[in-house]
């Protein structure tokens, strides 16, 4: 290390006393050693990926862009999109209920969140897939009409639509319901945290300026809430996207379900899992980039208020 000290001795500014300041770079040799050590398992993994025949790269390549798999991918995107929008809408309603003056509404909102947050998501999803057990048919009409009819001694035809609930609650409806309703509960929690951090005094200051309550919400409550809402909401969106894989157990043939099906049929499930991993890695990466772009834009809008 003598070469180092020679090099550093000649650099630096000159003190008033005339002596040059010795600047010595702070070095972390051990962190480099650790880094190199950690490269070893990574290399082993690469070797494994390249040489182990179980990965079946040929099968992966053959299937990963096949029409069936792409259909599954679209279904994943569709379910995630609907659950995102629907979950957000329901969460908005639940948040308003929770903040309302009506104790019954507050209780209902709380109970909803308690129920869907206490149950594991996969259980909820499978539960919705099996709801067909409860009723053979689903009718749309007036609630408790059988009771009303009996009381009045009439035979009203109050059932306007009916569905076969077994078909309704398998597939896309169950998938969307399971994801949307759970996501609504998760979003509600995020919103609660976000609005808990806002200051009632700032809202009143906005009202005092002469803003209407709606304006005060937009201008004084939302901006500080967005500081919590934006990052936490982003995390929730990524989580929702990843959790779409759960609806394979509804069963609903989205990306993961499709690939698993192919794997079972062809007798090579592992390569299909690898294909699923590749697709999720790729799509989530795009999603993350998109979210970060949106966040940067939103931050600019928030900070540059002039």
């Amino acid at each position: 290390m003598s070469a180092d000290s020679d090099a550093t001795a000649t650099t630096g500014t000159v003190r008033p006393s005339g002596q040059p300041i010795k600047t010595v770079a702070h070095r972390h040799p051990w962190s480099w050693v650790l880094g190199i050590l950690l490269l070893l398992p990574l290399g082993m993994l690469a070797h494994l990926l390249a040489t182990n025949p179980a990965f079946g790269w040929a099968t992966v390549r053959a299937q990963v862009f096949s029409a069936t798999v792409l259909d599954g991918l679209w279904r994943t995107l569709f379910v995630a999109g609907v659950a995102l929008v629907g979950g957000f809408a329901v969460a908005l309603g639940l948040t308003l209920m929770r903040r309302s003056g009506n104790p019954l509404l507050r209780l209902l909102s709380w109970a909803y969140c308690w129920f869907f947050r206490a149950l594991p998501r996969i259980v909820v999803v499978i539960l919705f897939g099996s709801l067909g057990v409860l009723y053979g048919r689903l009718d749309l009409g007036i609630p408790f009409d059988f009771w009303i009819e009996r009381r009045l001694g009439l035979d009203l035809d109050t059932r306007y639509f009916s569905f076969d609930s077994a078909t309704l609650f398998s597939g896309v409806v169950a998938a969307i319901l399971g994801l949307t309703l759970t996501q609504a509960a998760y979003f509600t929690e995020v919103m609660r945290d976000a609005f808990a951090g806002t200051d009632e005094a700032e809202r009143e200051a906005a009202l005092a300026l002469g803003m209407t309550p709606g304006q005060a919400r937009r201008r004084a409550v939302l901006p500080p809430a967005m500081r919590v809402l934006a990052p936490a909401g982003g995390r929730e969106i990524v989580r929702l996207y990843a959790d779409t894989a759960l609806v394979a157990f509804v069963p609903y043939p989205e990306l993961f379900g499709t690939l698993r099906g192919i794997g079972d049929q062809t007798g090579s499930p592992f390569p299909m899992l690898v294909a699923a991993c590749l697709w999720y890695l790729a799509t989530v990466s795009i999603l993350l980039i998109g979210l970060s772009v949106v966040r940067q834009w939103a931050t600019r809008r928030l900070e540059a208020h002039r």
């Binding site: 200051d199 700032e202 901006p223 500081r227």
Partner: peptide
Amino acid sequence: ADPPALFGTK
């Protein structure tokens, strides 16, 4: 008001 409740994000 007291405290003055300025808009913190602005």
